[in-house]
């Protein structure tokens, strides 16, 4: 875990790409000295990277055709009725 609320907020700001240059420098300097924050920061960066690496999934070939056939059929059943 980050060693303080201030560092946690700084890490979030950097990951959100909202940190000013001086804030980035501050975090950089801090994690060189603080193993907890260094680990926390790198684990977050890696988690985001892993998520972003997930492949795009593709709907089946017949997808558009089935949507269109449902539109054409009048009394379709609502599977996910609210």
């Amino acid at each position: 875990m980050a060693c303080s609320l201030e560092m946690k907020q700084l890490i979030d700001a950097v990951l959100d790409k909202e940190a000013a240059t001086w804030e980035q420098e501050k975090l950089k300097a801090h994690i060189q000295a603080c193993d907890n924050c260094k680990q926390h920061y790198h684990q977050l960066v890696k988690s985001v990277d892993l998520i972003k690496q997930l492949d795009q999934q593709h709907p089946p070939e017949h997808f558009t055709a089935s949507v269109l056939s449902c539109i054409a059929a009048p009394n379709r059943e609502y599977k996910y009725k609210r």
Binding site: Q57, P60, F63, V67, C70, I71, R76, Y78, K79, Y80
Partner: peptide, 16 residues
Amino acid sequence: PQEAEDLAQETFLRAY
């Protein structure tokens, strides 16, 4: 995958 397909289909039907 199957549930995702059903939900995606329902999304378009609702949109229509």
